[in-house]
Simulated assay, not measured.
Amino acid sequence: MSRKAQLRRELLAARALLTSEDVRNAASVLAAAASGLAELAGARTVAAYVSVGREPGTRALLDALHARGVRVLLPVLMADNDLDWAVFDGAEHLVPAGRGLREPDGARLGPHAVLEADAVLLPGLAVDGRGMRLGRGGGSYDRVLARLADAGAHPALVVLLYDDEVVARVPEEPHDHPVDAVVTPAGTRRFPRGRGTGDADPAGS
């Protein structure tokens, strides 16, 4: 088993121990912290996702962004694991999809719609001190990040995690992209552009 696969197993096992109350409490704190981030506060379009299971909760954040007039794009998983996008028009317009996901019921905008985002909220299992992110391994967001890089687009990349998911080191591969900020219930940490090496300086939200 690769180090990435082993770390994913450990992190998912830790999430499995969280109670529903743990998840709800963390989601409330994360929504408040992330809503106040400069990267999201000044964004006109944010690409985000609907959290499922014991993932750090995004639903309160989606509602807060939508309520203040931000155009929120949510992913629609395609058959090849790439992501299409649709606009979030409120929780009542989310419908069940495969793999336990929920997706908007509106028009599909195409995979390149993410290029319009000023900030992208990425799912993840861990981030290290260099800003390197560990995803679930499906590859969907690797394609999103590659699409952004190929187009020369540089939205703010933000990950929501639990406190113990900011780790010393995430195994990386050449296609991996570091993020700009991680938000946990304990606070926000930012990583400088041109990142991926060295240590990052913590910063408050």
Rank of each mutant, 00 (worst) to 15 (best):
P96A: 08
G98E: 11
G98K: 09
G98Y: 10
R99P: 08
R99I: 10
R99T: 10
L101T: 07
L101R: 03
R102Q: 14
E103T: 03
D105S: 14
D105I: 06
G106A: 13
G106C: 14
G106Q: 09
A107I: 15
R108A: 11
L109K: 08
L109A: 13
G110Q: 08
P111C: 15
A113R: 05
A113D: 07
A113E: 06
V114D: 01
A117N: 06
A119Y: 01
A119G: 14
A119V: 15
A119L: 13
A119I: 14
V120W: 00
L121E: 01
L121A: 02
L122V: 13
P123Q: 00
A126W: 01
A126N: 05
V127E: 00
V127T: 01
D128G: 09
G129R: 01
G129N: 03
R130I: 12
M132F: 15
M132K: 04
R133A: 02
G135V: 06
G135N: 04
G137W: 12
G137C: 15
G138H: 08
G139H: 03
G139M: 05
S140A: 11
S140C: 10
S140Y: 05
Y141F: 14
R143D: 09
R143Q: 11
L145S: 03
A146L: 10
A146Y: 03
R147L: 13
L148N: 06
A149N: 04
A151V: 14
A151G: 14
G152I: 07
G152M: 05
H154R: 14
P155E: 00
L157I: 10
V158L: 03
V158Y: 00
V158G: 00
Y162I: 01
D163I: 00
D164R: 11
E165R: 03
E165S: 09
V166D: 05
V167F: 07
A168G: 15
V170C: 08
E172G: 15
E173K: 06
E173Q: 10
P174D: 13
H175R: 12
D176Y: 07
H177V: 13
H177N: 07
P178Q: 01
D180W: 03
D180H: 05
A181S: 13
V182S: 08
V182H: 04
